[in-house]
Design a protein around this nucleic acid. Structure first.
Lengths: 217, 217, 217, 217
DNA sequence: AATGAATGAGGGTTCATTCAT
DNA sequence: TATGAATGAACCCTCATTCAT
């Protein structure tokens, strides 16, 4: 590949950053799966050689692990912020989900969501599982509190938690930045819908604040 | 060996059926992803040699394709049945989702849910996409009708459709037959919750009909 | 490679045996070193594909390890036999060395001699070192006994042991089956010479029983 | 930085000299083999970057070649000196071997001894082989003269030559400067032992002049 | 004189696939 | 029907080498 082509592919201004690598890797992992993704794929998308990646990342597995960590960090951060900014359980849950979903769609941050069994080192696997468990635990706790407060309808917090996460985690499979909806818009719509399903007395207003016509993704 | 004896042997010890292969393959595909799954893995799980699989399946890709078709068939069948058995949009949607989710959890059918880009032959890919598109189209149509009828709150049917599917498609990532909830129970709870988020006037009753305590999955 | 060429390369009668692989691998390891040897090299020498090797051997390192074990077994066996067949220390040492050296030259056994640091797994490394240490210990013990019996001149058994082994271990670097000396002949000459250096009253007869002219290796 | 300061820094911290590089490279080559040694390994051992090596050495192969040349030079120099300082064949051989062995152990000079086939450029290979052949030729000539003079027992000079070299060349595999024997001591013991095996009438005195107890290497 | 970054050419290993038995 | 053995195409990773700074 010539110098010019590389420039174009990599984006004019910068060389290889750990951040850029993570973002690009996450994007491709999400599309093709970890095992379906070649380091050559990632390198090509970044406009460099596969060997160049190894100057910045120690292994493909390490790449995946770091992507997971980014997502977990985003997720937990969302919970923290939600608690700061709202007190009602439904509002807290809405903020939490919106943050999570926006994080997933954010191409710059890049987040991997699929957990192909056996892709991670046992040690890393444990760490990721621990992070997820912690997030799920807090999510369920939030739902349970909503039930206790009478804001949410009785339900199984574990099952509902899985539904919430599933809806969000599936997004990378269909979302394209070229679509007509902005990430923020999508995130809010998802959050609104997902919370609404739990509220004892949901508002009757539209789920999408801006009820424009047109394709969404 | 006579036909009867062979049948018995087949039944008893579980000789290689296309159905059994599909079911086992799907189970592993769902866990480890298509590229993360070896034909040796599938063969081992079935207690045979890898070469034996080739007597029943023409290729790994064909296996994946057939798993996809199983799910598409289940999905569309669910829509048909729902239309036969109910007329209200919310009830139709509920039946549709319950059927879909039960199908995903059915360990005997062999349905896969992940669409790793590039895993399928272009021709097969097109066919699967076509099937999915058809299902999604009808799903959106159902949602739109609910809106028109005033049963559902205004929303973007496309986005909500993705949320519904995501919640369901994520199930193989966490569901284990060893869990405390029966598949039917999970399916109904999911369907109830997912429909409830759209209903203008949802019922206040619990989402899980049998509100027992205990872990769910 | 065509079928005919493969037949010729592999040797008409047999397919891939663990024994044949070991022998060929050892031969190349001894020439080019472990890291300088490609599995493609070994495969080519055997007339098969590199992948075919993996059906019989789990890894390159395992191959090396097994070659080491072959030699260690030969070495210890030589000590045992020498003790059975002779009682005088010098005669025992002579038999021991002759057996060892013949074993090294045996193209059918597959023994390696180089110990490139870091080539073996730590666990395997330990095992090989242990085997070598045991052999060296017994060799020194034999020398020491010769000294006590007055058959050998006073010396440092450790140093002399290293000299003995070095002379033998170096053989793969120059020996070729195409040479004019038979392995047995070489082994006896080496053993005679190496023992003679220790004997208080060495015989005056020629070191090579058959004192022919001509190139030796 | 002035010339004096640079000198001091060079002396104190050990700036990159061709000599130092050669010595360190040889040491590692001897342990791990040529192909098992990374230029990063050598660089790290010298406390510099790999790229820095390329300021002083044109290639890894060149490094190996120069190491070989150092050894050949040492070897031939040993022969010359031996001829100057003694006239009896056995004494000449003893001096020759002692010089060779000391050269091999001398950490500063550093010498590589393993000849991994294919490691050197054909041209360099030829040159090294030529040097070795010359040395071996003269060594055999020396042995043959000893036989003609009746000082040595009849033998095959070629075989014995290989034994001598093997004993010496093996030393880097076990020698450690931390051992209890000084290089000179080891060299003399080896030379004495190796010559003794050829002498028609060897002295009965101990092989190690200083017959202390204790570990040797 | 030295370094950080990048590259191209392998080398070890896996795996879908084939085929003789 | 089923299997053991073999193959070719990748894929991950390493490393000698280069080059701008």
């Amino acid at each position: 590949m010539g110098a010019v082509a590389r420039e174009q592919a990599a984006g004019a201004r910068g060389s290889l950053t750990r951040e850029k690598i993570l973002a690009e890797a996450a994007r491709i992992f999400n599309r093709r799966g970890y095992h379906g993704t070649t380091l050559d794929d990632v390198a090509r998308a970044l406009g460099v050689t596969k060997a160049a990646l190894y100057y910045h990342v120690s292994s493909k597995e390490a790449l995946l692990f770091q992507c997971h960590q980014v997502l977990i960090e985003i997720a937990l951060e969302g919970l923290r912020r939600a608690r700061e900014r709202a007190s009602a359980p439904d509002e807290q849950l809405r903020l939490t989900l919106a943050h999570y979903i926006e994080g997933i769609m954010d191409q710059l941050r890049g987040s991997v969501v699929l957990v192909e069994d056996g892709a991670l080192t046992p040690a890393h696997q444990r760490q990721v599982i621990a992070g997820r468990d912690e997030y799920e635990r807090q999510l369920r706790e939030l739902i349970a509190r909503g039930m206790r407060d009478g804001v949410f309808v009785p339900c199984d917090p574990k099952l509902v938690g899985f539904a919430l996460l599933g809806a969000g985690n599936w997004i990378p499979k269909w979302y394209s930045p070229a679509g007509s909806r902005a990430p923020k818009e999508i995130a809010e719509a998802f959050a609104a819908y997902l919370v609404r399903g739990l509220q004892r007395q949901p508002s009757a207003e539209a789920i999408l604040p801006l009820a424009e016509a047109g394709a969404s993704a």
